[in-house]
Amino acid sequence: MQIIFATMSRLFFVLMIGVSLFMLFRGHNEPGGGFIGGLIAALGFALLAMARGVETARRALVVHPVALMGSGLLLAFVSGLPGLLSDRSFLTHWWTEIGSTHLGTATTFDIGVYCVVVGGVLCLVFRLYEGIEQ
């Protein structure tokens, strides 16, 4: 493996995770959101897997991609429940304002989407890369 690529991959990985989180939280009033953030984060992990092997990327992710997907889905589902209690309407979101930023159950939903996208994409990417490595 090329030394430059392998060394830089760590830097890029950290950068991409940072950008993805920025995108995730920016998505409330401006373009961005869980889906795009998730894709960027998944790209970061895919880069790490390409440079340093799938095993390293799997360890960096800590949990299994499918488990991440499941937790994300659960989080998104749970974020719809408060609206059910107040308005009898699933996915009607609650909002609060802290200073100038809006926060609400929609943020939880977006984090859920983020996890689902990271898990889903990596599930496929790791499988494909492992096939190449063999």
């Binding site: 299994h64 499918v66 499941g70 659960l74 589902f77």
Partner: peptide, 15 residues
């Protein structure tokens, strides 16, 4: 909602 939540729990309990 129940199958959706169940699918999510089953996936989260991957191991």
């Amino acid at each position: 909602a129940i199958p959706l939540a169940t699918a999510a729990i089953c996936a989260a309990a991957w191991a």
